[in-house]
Simulated scan of single mutants.
Amino acid sequence: MISHTISPKLLRTISETSYALLVLLTVVATGLSCAALLSQAVRTAPNRNWTKNFNALVIGASYIVVLAASLLLCVKRRVAVRLKLQRISKTPKTLEKSDLPKSVHWYIAHEYYRACLISYESLPKDIVHEGWGRPGTPYAGQRFRRVLLDTIPQIDSLARIVIPLQPPMKPHARVLHHFRFIAPLLPLDEDKISSLHYYDAAIQIARISDRELTEEEFLTGMQAAEEIMRCLEICRPDRSDSSSTQLNDCPHET
């Protein structure tokens, strides 16, 4: 969260300042401890002097060795990092089989195949969640209720192209009533029922039912929606040269 509100330049300045303060505090603390130990070595010496003071010599030599070792490690680390960075190619390059030892290439390929197999075996199979599309079907992973309700504005947009005076959509109005003006354009089945009635029934279940849609109900509603949109596409004014040709192309109730 902080990295998004503070600029990278300010973060870098804070980081460098903190590092410098840490190094300074370490040096000061080390120097003070060295001075305190040397002072104690002088005070506890029999002659209370620096001359022939073995303890002071050991303390001073220890700090000198620590300082030399610290500087050596820092220089060694810096040189090692620089050498490794110089080995990195500056141009993008795709690694091939010949660029790697056989054992490394085999290990990478083996782990890749293993990960692919695990991913495939982890996919859900023959699992049915109420109101959701089954894996392997065209509607896999999609919620029936949401997909079916999303077809209402699509049909409404097509209906307004065919019938510009189509009334505005009301939130809780039944689609059978809202799309009543396009009902004469839809064909009837052998039971004298149009696709609009099947669509309205499915939409009512999706809207007000306390249970989820079954796959059969969902498919019935989607087939009805596709049939309605197909008829409206046929009756679009821009698909014919004149209004008379348009009306002749549209299916009517019989």
Rank of each mutant, 00 (worst) to 15 (best):
Q204P: 08
Q86R: 15
E233S: 09
Q166R: 00
K84H: 06
T245L: 11
V79T: 09
L219A: 00
Y19F: 08
D238P: 14
M1V: 08
S103P: 01
S39D: 06
P124V: 05
R160I: 05
R143Q: 13
Y112P: 04
L37F: 10
P184H: 02
D126F: 10
C231G: 06
L32K: 03
E16I: 03
K76V: 13
C231K: 12
S157G: 05
T245M: 13
K84E: 12
L188C: 06
S70Q: 01
S240N: 15
T17M: 08
E96W: 00
S157Q: 08
L22A: 10
V66A: 15
Q246Y: 04
V75R: 12
P187S: 01
A68H: 07
Q246F: 04
L57W: 01
I2E: 01
D241K: 14
S98N: 09
S119D: 12
E217S: 04
Y139V: 09
S33P: 00
I163R: 02
M229F: 01
T91A: 01
I182F: 06
V128N: 07
I155W: 00
K102G: 14
V79P: 08
P164C: 10
S240I: 06
T17W: 11
S194I: 00
F144N: 03
L149N: 03
V104C: 06
L158H: 08
E212C: 11
R211C: 13
E16N: 03
W50P: 15
T220D: 02
E212G: 12
A41G: 07
F54M: 11
P8F: 12
R160G: 11
L10C: 10
E190N: 09
K9E: 07
P101G: 13
V23E: 15
V128C: 00
D238M: 09
P8R: 14
